[in-house]
Simulated scan of single mutants.
Amino acid sequence: MVDTKGASATVARYARFAKNTLESGTFKETARSVAKHVSSTTPAYGLKRDLQAPHETPAAKIPISVRPLVEADVEHILDLHADVDSAERWERQTRTRLLERGIGRPYVAVDDEDDPCYVQWLFRPDENDEVQDFFHGLFPVLGRDEALLEGAFTPVRHQGQRIMSAGMSMIADKAADIGARYVVTFVGINNIASLKGCERAGFLPYVNRYEKRLVGRLRVEFHRMSAAEVEDARVLK
């Protein structure tokens, strides 16, 4: 029997994606993404934080706090029609898709005027099926004492304030409320700024991920790091 409901949902998602691409003008970024899906190997580091290990939340250059994202925040941090370049609109578009899917718990870091300046999603292990489906297996299945942080985004106007490391650290702390001891996240090996932010937030490398695509087919491999590989992968030493 054909799953017409599932097929309709998939078509609807792609239709929204195409509509957002047209409206936001992110043609170049979309083309780059499509080309990547044809044939590529993309390495990334998986990083993990033990919430029971000593850790001091790093300070941002401005006072911030974190709270759950509310509807009124969306137009301030994910507006697709904001006066930003196409690269940032692409980043906003991908987070909007995640928000529309309705999985995970999005948190925002806000300044002292409650203006959202950073957003990131926290995923629970009971969302494994939804996470695997939405992200196409890019993340390992979470154990009962694990949580995943994904979708980090700092608008350009708020960058350079070390908001990511402080906000990420505080959002990771929220995982303890859902019974997690460990929080994991993934970052491309060449994204040095994000890797530094993750380390400041208490995350250390623990696994290599290889995202391999050939003619649209995706295979994801995870390889646990040795102690020496962990040290080599660290960017703050």
Score class of each variant (00 low, 15 high):
201 A>F: 08
79 D>S: 11
122 L>E: 06
202 G>T: 00
141 V>H: 00
205 P>N: 02
14 Y>W: 14
207 V>R: 14
13 R>I: 11
227 A>F: 06
151 G>R: 06
11 V>Q: 02
43 P>I: 02
81 H>G: 12
109 A>L: 03
157 R>Q: 07
141 V>T: 12
24 S>K: 10
58 P>A: 04
27 F>E: 11
111 D>W: 07
41 T>Y: 07
176 A>L: 09
65 S>I: 05
97 R>N: 13
199 E>L: 06
11 V>D: 00
237 K>L: 11
106 P>M: 01
152 A>C: 10
78 L>S: 06
193 A>R: 12
68 P>H: 07
40 S>W: 12
105 R>A: 15
175 A>W: 05
59 A>I: 02
225 M>G: 01
229 E>L: 00
212 K>M: 12
169 S>F: 03
51 L>I: 04
185 T>Y: 00
28 K>Y: 12
206 Y>F: 15
126 D>Y: 09
73 D>I: 05
94 T>A: 11
152 A>M: 09
11 V>G: 00
22 L>E: 08
199 E>V: 04
60 A>I: 04
25 G>Q: 00
194 S>L: 06
139 F>W: 02
95 R>Y: 02
182 Y>T: 06
160 G>I: 02
133 D>M: 07
16 R>W: 10
59 A>N: 09
230 V>C: 12
230 V>W: 05
221 E>L: 13
13 R>S: 14
40 S>G: 09
77 I>A: 07
222 F>V: 02
140 P>W: 02
88 E>A: 04
159 Q>R: 15
108 V>D: 04
102 G>R: 03
206 Y>H: 13
35 A>N: 09
237 K>V: 10
96 T>E: 11
16 R>Q: 14
85 D>M: 06
31 A>S: 13
147 A>F: 00
89 R>D: 05
85 D>S: 08
12 A>T: 14
227 A>W: 03
100 E>K: 09
192 I>Q: 14
107 Y>M: 03
82 A>D: 09
178 I>N: 01
63 P>W: 06
43 P>F: 02
88 E>G: 05
204 L>C: 05
84 V>G: 04
226 S>I: 08
69 L>K: 06
206 Y>W: 12
190 N>M: 12
225 M>N: 01
36 K>H: 13
226 S>G: 08
8 S>G: 15
149 L>D: 08
208 N>F: 14
52 Q>V: 10
204 L>A: 11
213 R>T: 06
118 Y>F: 15
211 E>L: 12
100 E>I: 03
60 A>T: 04
209 R>C: 09
101 R>P: 05
59 A>G: 05
24 S>M: 13
192 I>C: 08
62 I>N: 04
173 D>M: 13
6 G>L: 13
176 A>H: 09
40 S>F: 14
232 D>P: 00
114 D>P: 01
33 S>Q: 14
155 P>F: 07
146 E>G: 04
236 L>G: 02
48 K>A: 01
156 V>R: 13
222 F>E: 00
213 R>F: 06
165 S>D: 09
45 Y>T: 00
40 S>L: 10
148 L>G: 05
106 P>K: 01
26 T>L: 04
152 A>N: 07
180 A>P: 04
216 G>W: 06
195 L>W: 04
211 E>F: 09
176 A>T: 13
